[in-house]
Amino acid sequence: MKIIEGRVWKFGDNIDTDVIIPARYLNTSDPEELAKHCMEDIDSGFSKKVRKGDLIVAGDNFGCGSSREHAPIAIKAAGIAGIIARSFARIFFRNAINIGLPIIECPEAVDKIESDTLIRIDLSSGLITDIRNGKSYRATPFPPFMQELIAAGGLMNYVMLQQRL
């Protein structure tokens, strides 16, 4: 498990999959194409402003709505290296784990960390550090089975190992 470090883009509660990637772009599954339109209905130009390795910090129920895997794919392809939220909608949670986009639930960090801050996340320990002021927050680690999935590099790699494909 690795350590990721990046600049924070902060979002509110109930960021739904229709704003993460509007359905009008779902006639393709090309990650680069999806990335261009990521978040455009609530923050136009988001995809141009994001730098590779940046992080999203958001409120409750991030990724609610549709099951479209295009949502975490768009975020990942836009260059976002990980998401911290107070909570995630369950299908988004699955999809992010399955495609290997690091996500962490930590309400305290969300409440304290501000936009544009540089933070560091240690994915194995769940330790989140605000580099500017040195304050740190601890997220609940994933249960062992999910750690196995993440360590394998997502669900398909895990299935391939199991099925010896």
Binding site: E69, L155, M156, Q163
Partner: peptide, 18 residues
């Protein structure tokens, strides 16, 4: 329950879901 595309791919191979 709703799942994503990768979950569907895995289920089409294994017949199982976590």
């Amino acid at each position: 329950t709703g799942i994503g595309s990768t979950d569907l791919a895995a289920a089409m191979i294994t017949g199982e879901v976590w």
